[in-house]
C-alpha cells in the first residue's frame, strides 16, 4: 500500500487522487487477505480431514481388540480377526468374567496398583530429599554420587537383571509389598537427576532465611523446598508411574510369579510355554488394562503431557 502511494506521489498525482487509489487499494488488499484466508481455511479443512482419517486408523488397533474380546474362544482366529462378532460368535461378557474370576485379573490389578503407588511415593519422597542434600552440600562425595546416579539412568536393565533378582531373593524383597525398595534403587537415577536439575535453578537464600529463622533442615525441607519442587514432583511422578505400571521384566524376575502376577506379567502369562495363547481372556485383560489408563489420562492429561514434555527436555 505504501509503495503504491509513494509511486503515485512520484508520478505527481495530487493527494486527492492518492486517497482515491488508497481506498481502492484497501479494497483490493482486503479481498486479497480474504482470498488468503480462504486458502488457509481450505488448507486447514484438508489438514483436519487428514487428521481425522489418521485418528481413525490410529484408534483402530484398540477398537479391533475391543470387538474381538467379545468373541467366543473358538471363533477367534487370524482369518476372521477383522470381522465383527455376530450372533454365533458373540460371547457377551464371558471373556471378561473369565479374566476377572478365574485368571486372577483383580489380584493383578491390586498388585500393580500397590506396587506403582508405593514405589512412586517412595521415589518422590526419598529422592527429593537426597537430591536436596546433594545439591546443597558440595564435596567430592556428593559429586561422585551425582554422577553415579546419572550413570545408572543410562545402564540397560539387562546388565543387572540376573544379579538384581538374586540379590532381591536373598534379602527377601521378592513380594509386592517390599518391591518398592528395588524400584526406589533402580528408579533413583532419573528422579535425583531431575530434582537436582531444578534445585540448581532456585536460590539458596530462601532456605537459608528459613534456617536462620529457626527451622531445622527437616522443617526447611518440608515447608520451603517441597512446595517449590511441586511441578518437578508431578513430572517425576508421572514418568516413574508410567515406568513402574508398565514394567514387565523387573517384577517378572524379582517377584515369585507363581504367587504374584502384576498386569503385564499376567498378560504375558497367557502365552503358554508351547506358544498356545488363550486369546479371548487375553484380549479382555488388555481392554481391562487400558480402561483405567485412559481414565487417569483423560483426568490428568494436561499435567501428563506437560510433565512428560518437561521431563524430556530436562532429561
Amino acid at each position: 500500500m505504501n509503495e503504491k502511494e509513494l509511486k503515485d506521489l512520484k508520478k505527481g498525482n495530487g493527494p486527492n487522487i492518492a486517497k482515491e487509489s488508497e481506498s481502492q487499494e484497501r479494497k483490493e488488499s482486503r479481498e486479497e487477505s480474504k482470498k488468503l484466508k480462504q486458502k488457509e481455511n481450505t488448507a486447514n479443512i484438508l489438514i483436519m480431514v487428514a487428521l481425522i482419517a489418521f485418528s481413525i486408523a490410529f484408534v483402530y488397533p484398540v477398537f479391533m481388540i475391543l470387538f474381538n474380546s467379545f468373541k467366543v474362544g473358538s471363533a477367534f482366529s487370524t482369518n476372521t480377526a477383522f470381522n465383527l462378532p455376530n450372533g454365533d460368535t458373540f460371547s457377551k461378557l464371558d471373556n471378561y468374567i473369565d479374566a476377572i474370576k478365574s485368571k486372577g485379573f483383580s489380584q493383578s490389578l491390586f498388585y500393580s496398583f500397590f506396587i506403582t503407588i508405593s514405589s512412586v511415593a517412595a521415589i518422590l519422597l526419598c529422592c527429593s530429599m537426597c537430591a536436596w542434600f546433594i545439591s546443597r552440600i558440595r564435596n567430592w562425595f556428593t559429586e561422585v554420587l551425582y554422577y553415579i546416579f546419572v550413570f545408572s539412568m543410562i545402564v540397560p536393565f539387562q546388565m543387572v537383571m540376573f544379579t538384581l533378582s538374586k540379590t532381591a531373593d536373598k534379602l527377601n524383597l521378592n513380594t509386592p509389598y517390599v518391591i518398592w525398595i528395588i524400584y526406589l534403587g533402580f528408579g533413583a537415577g532419573l528422579a535425583v537427576f531431575m530434582f537436582c536439575g531444578f534445585l540448581k535453578s532456585i536460590p539458596i537464600e530462601i532456605e537459608e532465611a528459613a534456617m536462620i529463622d529457626g527451622c531445622n533442615p527437616i522443617q526447611t525441607f518440608f515447608m520451603i523446598v517441597i512446595p517449590m519442587l511441586k511441578p518437578t514432583m508431578i513430572s517425576v511422578g508421572i514418568l516413574e508411574a508410567m515406568w513402574v505400571w508398565n514394567d514387565y521384566l523387573l517384577p517378572y524376575l524379582v517377584l515369585d510369579i507363581k504367587k504374584y502376577k502384576t498386569i503385564p506379567i499376567l498378560i504375558q502369562y497367557f502365552r503358554g510355554s508351547y506358544g498356545k495363547v488363550e486369546w479371548g481372556p487375553l484380549m479382555a485383560c488388555i481392554m481391562l488394562t487400558i480402561i483405567p489408563i485412559v481414565i487417569v489420562y483423560i483426568a490428568g492429561q494436561k499435567h501428563i503431557i506437560k510433565g512428560v514434555a518437561a521431563g524430556a527436555v530436562k532429561g
Binding site: A122, C126, C127, M129, C130, L145, F149, S152, V155, V160, L164, T167, A168, L171, L173, I181, I182, Y183, L184, G185, F186, A188, G189, V192
Partner: peptide, 10 residues
C-alpha cells in the same frame, strides 16, 4: 534411605 536402596538396586 535412597543410598541403601540404590546400593541394593543398582
Amino acid at each position: 534411605p535412597t543410598l541403601a536402596a540404590f546400593a541394593i538396586g543398582f
